[in-house]
């Protein structure tokens, strides 16, 4: 039984609070790679390789999130999840598995998992899903959103391109914030519209298109290198150039 508690290494600078994760994975090499990768993203990881180990770990420490493999030496990870949920344990659980069958995802979620990720995966995606599950807007990534040469400070409601503040209406800032939070992903139109409606301003049917259009012009005028793409019939997505170009 291995227990690597890397809390001592400490989180990278900029992270307000270190999230403590429990990884239950019996493949030692994969477990090492995942915990290394997530530690670089600012998480603290404890590793166990069996259901017994995971249950034991939870009696001695409090975890913010569990990453659970399903095929474990002493049983099915789903049984661990069900047992935890029966006990009323509501710690978020992300299933990390090779099982990608048609009904596996639903089975995982039915057992009480909060998210389901099929191997293989990349660390940034895993980290993004972990953050989404932790629902903790209090860390640096959430208060200062960046993509390409854009910086949005959520508390100040300001947008900076290449360090220069640009003018924008509250609704444009709100739209950009939503897109930045899901940078690289498509954000559905209804989600964007709901956010704008909630701002108590009158919204015409084409309001969203108009706001996107104005925001694009402002960003282009400020020589921003991010692009807001239209996904026809679905929504919008913000793409930043690859990190190497920054």
């Amino acid at each position: 039984m291995t227990d690597f508690n890397r809390d001592a290494l400490g989180p990278p600078a900029g992270l307000v609070a270190t999230m403590r994760l429990l990884l239950v994975e019996d493949n030692a090499r994969l477990a090492a790679l995942v915990s290394d990768g997530l530690e670089q993203q600012g998480f603290a990881i404890d590793r166990y390789e069996s259901i017994d180990g995971a249950e034991h770990a939870q009696t001695i420490a409090q975890y913010d999130l569990l990453l659970v493999d399903l095929g474990l030496p002493d049983g099915d990870g789903l049984d661990l999840i069900r047992a935890m949920r029966r006990r009323g344990n509501s710690t978020p659980i992300l299933v990390l598995t090779a099982r990608g069958g048609l009904d596996d995802r639903v089975a995982g979620l039915d057992a009480g998992a909060d998210d389901y990720l099929v191997k293989p995966f990349q660390i940034p995606e895993l980290a993004a899903r972990c953050r989404a599950l932790l629902r903790r807007p209090g860390n640096a990534l959430d208060s200062v959103l960046t993509a390409g040469n854009i910086v949005l400070v959520t508390a100040e409601r300001t947008i900076r391109v290449n360090g220069q503040a640009i003018e924008a209406t509250p609704r444009e800032v709100a739209l950009l914030e939503l897109l930045l939070r899901r940078s690289g992903h498509v954000v559905a139109k209804p989600a964007l519209e709901n956010a704008l409606y909630s701002m108590e301003a009158e919204v015409t049917p084409n309001a969203l298109e108009a706001i996107v259009s104005r925001l694009r012009k402002r960003l282009a005028a400020a020589a921003s290198n991010v692009q807001i793409k239209t996904v026809h019939g679905v929504g919008y997505a913000l793409f930043a150039p690859p990190a190497a170009d920054e």
Binding site: L30, L33, D36, V118, P120
Partner: peptide, 14 residues
């Protein structure tokens, strides 16, 4: 094959 592929992917990324 999925687990070794995941290991390889994470290894390559490093």
């Amino acid at each position: 094959l999925r687990t070794p592929l995941a290991i390889m992917q994470l290894g390559i990324d490093r």
